[in-house]
């Protein structure tokens, strides 16, 4: 995709469970002393979708952050951002160093090209454990705990209304008004 190097921080052997705090704390240790100008993250993860890691990390590193951005322009130290706020676009001016979380619409991800895939094999991929970051389990112990995971109750099959369009519409309005009471 275009990265010059990658790092995998493997917590499999050390941590049974973690939360957004855990992840942000580990990333803080990794970024310490690296003086990154710009950190790009996702808006929310597809599984937990808590959206906490980005802002928490920025807070630990003492740098400003802007979430859910849809445009980013950097000129020297100055940064202009478009941020999506529930149907409103805010034009934000700030400066580096900075952390942003990306919202859909920022860029169209490229497809990995065949030469790119070949080159990637030669790029460095570093693997670290939390020991390597001078952390132990207690430093990153989760501050929340999941005590149960369950599936939502199976939804009963809906009702397809019968008749021509006009009959369907009349029945629907009657149901919404009298049975569901949502009108």
């Amino acid at each position: 995709m275009g990265a010059d190097k990658a790092v995998l921080i493997n917590t499999e052997d050390d941590l049974e469970e973690g939360d957004a705090f855990t992840t942000a704390k580990i990333l803080e240790a990794y970024f310490e002393g690296k003086e990154a100008d710009l950190i790009l993250g996702g808006n929310v993860a597809i599984d937990e979708a808590s959206g906490q890691v980005g802002p928490r990390l920025a807070e630990y590193l003492g740098i400003p952050y802007v979430t859910t951005i849809t445009d980013l322009k950097i000129e020297g130290e100055n940064v202009t951002i478009e941020k999506d706020v529930e149907g409103v676009v805010e034009i934000v001016e700030t400066s580096l160093p900075l952390l942003v979380t990306c919202q859909q619409g920022l860029n169209e991800p490229r497809y990995p090209s065949l030469p790119g895939i070949m080159k990637a094999k030669k790029k460095p991929l570093e693997e670290l454990e939390i020991d390597d970051l001078d952390l132990d389990e207690d430093d990153v112990a989760a501050k929340t705990k999941t005590i149960d995971i369950f599936l939502p109750p199976e939804k009963e099959a809906g009702r397809v209304l019968e008749g021509d369009a006009s009959e369907q519409v009349q029945e629907l309005v009657s149901i919404l008004k009298n049975d569901e009471k949502v009108l």
Binding site: A141, A142, K143, T144, K145, I147, I149, F150, L151, P152
Partner: peptide, 9 residues
């Protein structure tokens, strides 16, 4: 799916 969560710290 859904999860039930508590704050532990």
């Amino acid at each position: 799916a859904f999860e039930k969560k508590i704050v532990t710290d």
